[in-house]
Design a protein around this nucleic acid. Structure first.
Lengths: 195, 195
DNA sequence: TATCAAAACTAACGATTATTAGTTTTTATA
DNA sequence: TATAAAAACTAATAATCGTTAGTTTTGATA
């Protein structure tokens, strides 16, 4: 049987991880067997172990990669000048685009993190709580400067994060463009708390 | 070992189903073993089969029970008089309360339905799509009567349903009351599309 | 107390799981 | 073309899975 063919700028390990993300999304982590993953890669199951450490390592790689991407974007946004609402809008739009463009991995990070083993599970939860805290702080600043209504900032952040996460259910039957989707949802979520 | 003790108004089957919902929520359906479920019930695994048909039957019961509850509430709301915004608000509030008060079962229905076997998987998806259509129709009516902005109704419904679904991530560290949570989120989601 | 069904138990089934060991094939380099 | 490493393979491991069979215990009724 043929070897795994790495693409131009993607290692075999990364290719396996991408295939794993697609399967984890569709079937769930626990319900995805290494044999099924191997088949989707085009190889026998034991051959995977020439490239990866194990099943759980795949989930870890996916979850922490996604977490890192969101944290990095938040970093750069906070460094820019501009008011809170602009920053908030940028981050909301980034979340929406990530959901639309990196569906598999973001979905897995959002849904299958529970299957992480310790100590990775704890690390992941700490990272996520820290991210939400930054988000809440941004809303609190917006409220203090009277850009935003005096809502409960935690509820607002929960509403926003949940709404964008729900893009996993988007089925584009009516061929609505990504741009309209992004604009409409961003406006809905921002206008709901704008002063 | 002791028998399963049914409570006053709950059969053993229902008790097992409730315990299953709690485990499916925490561990996921595929990662929950019948032995683990049996332990949480206080019984050996084979004893469960005196009361239930099998593991998959438990998931089916949970998913379709939740679907039925939401459909029933939508029915009664539609029968009431009143404008679209009032109906919409009622349904949003009902979703929020269901998430807060029937967490386990609603969570499982939202997340583990993928593990349903055919033909139940298809039935569930048909039901869910039908529910979303009713929701979209309600928003469309609100737009036609100029109660709501001329947003894309599908995007608005996705935003609303996703936001309430995200209450699964709610951790009440700061002891915010359910009422404030319900009010704030409802206002956030309604004001964002109100005319 | 005797009876009988309900519901628990133990033991075991075949299937599937992730993973390891050991071997062969492929591929790149010299 | 010879060599060595990379990566595939086959075979098999122990563990765990949902579930069934057969038996014993429990609990209510007579």
């Amino acid at each position: 049987m043929a070897k795994i063919k790495p693409g131009k700028h993607i290692s075999k390990k990364d290719m396996i991880t991408l295939k794993a993300a697609a399967l984890f999304k569709t079937k769930g982590y626990a319900a995805t067997s290494m044999r099924a993953l191997a088949e989707s890669v085009g190889v026998e199951a034991p051959s995977l172990y020439n490239h990866i450490g194990g099943k759980s390592e795949l989930l870890q790689a996916i979850c922490f990669k996604v977490a890192h991407i969101f944290n990095t974007y938040f970093d750069t946004t906070e460094k820019t000048g501009g008011n809170s609402v602009t920053k908030l809008e940028n981050i909301i739009r980034f979340h929406i685009r990530m959901m639309l463009e990196n569906f598999d991995e973001v979905y897995v990070a959002n849904h299958e993190w529970k299957q992480l083993k310790e100590p990775y599970l704890s690390h992941f939860l700490i990272q996520r709580r820290a991210y939400e805290k930054r988000f809440v702080a941004l809303v609190e600043t917006g409220i203090r400067t009277h850009e935003l209504k005096a809502v409960n900032p935690q509820v607002a952040v929960l509403t926003i994060l949940s709404a964008v996460r729900g893009l996993e259910f988007w089925q584009n039957k009516k061929k609505i463009s990504h741009q309209i989707l992004e604009d409409d949802m961003t406006n809905h979520l921002l206008k709901g708390i704008l002063n």
